[in-house]
């Protein structure tokens, strides 16, 4: 279990992480979601004891990272696949890490096998493609067979096959009872990967809930009505104090469910040609929640650029 309590990080005048508290439970894949520049990587670095928090603390199974004995046996992390010396071979990179935590040398071959890098283990890591580097990073994270795993934007730059592989892989790790904490700026990816979501924007916690609840809560539930007596219906709805907007021949009502709208229509004597619940998309939910907290706004109007088009910031 990972626990952040009032975690704060200040760089000069900018508050990168602002009083952030959340817990990451074991046995589930927990997504760490937020737009670029929201403070996800900084938070992960603080969990790993690489950056010192300005305030608050991050605990792993109740301990600070620095107090863990042989930390790779407790926590495995892939924060950036490029944190490898380019002239060192993949195997040599894993060997020194294994040695540092007194892990047996044969564990190196095991993790290379798991991620499918056995055939290129002797090659210099600098020549690896992004996908291969990512696999090497995952191998390093698995080295100590840890109960807690952190991945920062693991699907960045991967082909669809690689994305699918990582997704299944993280599910398997969670099914084995491990704590899996994975960050992303892609809600669509998180919806498929994560069962729990910690959502942040501008360093602040926006929500922590199950992915299902997050989508349900965040999605704006509306009702579409079509009627030949649209004017009368509009007046009645207006009196009931709900918000209405026009969309072509129909009205979109928010703040009332289908039943209530139907009853109101009946009491007004309006004939209904359509009465249907509308569910917002995940991306809309995400944009709505984090809309005010995007660090770098794009020039394109209406926030219509899906978050997927924005490259991840490290």
């Amino acid at each position: 279990m990972i626990e952040a309590v009032g975690l704060t990080k200040r760089y000069g005048k900018t508050l990168a992480v602002d009083n952030l508290s959340f817990t990451v439970p074991a046995g589930r894949v927990t997504g760490f979601l937020g737009p670029n520049g929201a403070g996800k990587s900084t938070t992960m670095r603080m969990i790993l004891g690489l950056d010192a928090p300005t305030g608050g603390s991050a605990l792993i199974d109740g301990k600070h990272y620095r107090d863990l004995h042989h930390p790779l046996r407790t926590v495995g992390a892939l924060l950036d696949a490029k944190w490898v010396h380019p002239n060192r071979s993949a195997r040599a990179h894993l060997q020194w890490m294994a040695k540092s935590n007194k892990l047996p040398a044969k564990r190196v071959d095991e993790v290379l096998e798991i991620v499918g890098l056995t055939s290129v283990a002797g090659k210099r890591a600098g020549g690896f493609s992004l996908g291969m580097s990512q696999r090497l990073g995952i191998a390093a994270a698995l080295l100590g067979d840890p109960q807690v795993l952190l991945f920062d934007e693991p699907v960045n730059g991967l082909d669809p096959e690689g994305i699918l592989w990582i997704r299944k892989f993280m599910h398997r790790l969670a099914e084995e009872g491990r704590t899996v904490f994975v960050s992303s700026h892609l809600l669509s990816e998180m919806a498929l990967t994560a069962q729990e979501l910690v959502v942040i924007g501008r360093g602040k916690l926006i929500s922590q809930s199950s992915t299902e609840d997050f989508v349900a809560q965040a999605t704006e539930n509306t009702v579409r009505v079509r009627s030949p007596q649209l004017a009368a219906l509009r007046t009645a709805l207006g009196r009931a104090g709900v918000s209405i907007r026009d969309e072509g021949e129909s009205l979109i009502v928010s703040g009332m469910d289908c039943a209530e709208v139907g009853e109101l229509a009946a009491s007004t004597g309006a004939v209904l040609h359509e009465l249907s619940p509308q569910r917002g998309s995940l991306e809309e939910a995400f944009m709505q929640l984090t809309g005010d907290s995007v660090e770098y706004h794009t020039e394109i109007a209406d926030g219509q650029v899906p978050a997927t088009l924005v490259p991840a910031g490290k």
Partner: peptide
């Protein structure tokens, strides 16, 4: 300095927090 350049210093401090 190459550890800093290639950020392997972070991998080092991750493996050896002391």
């Amino acid at each position: 300095t190459t550890e800093y350049r290639f950020s392997t210093i972070r991998a080092t401090f991750q493996a050896i927090p002391n």
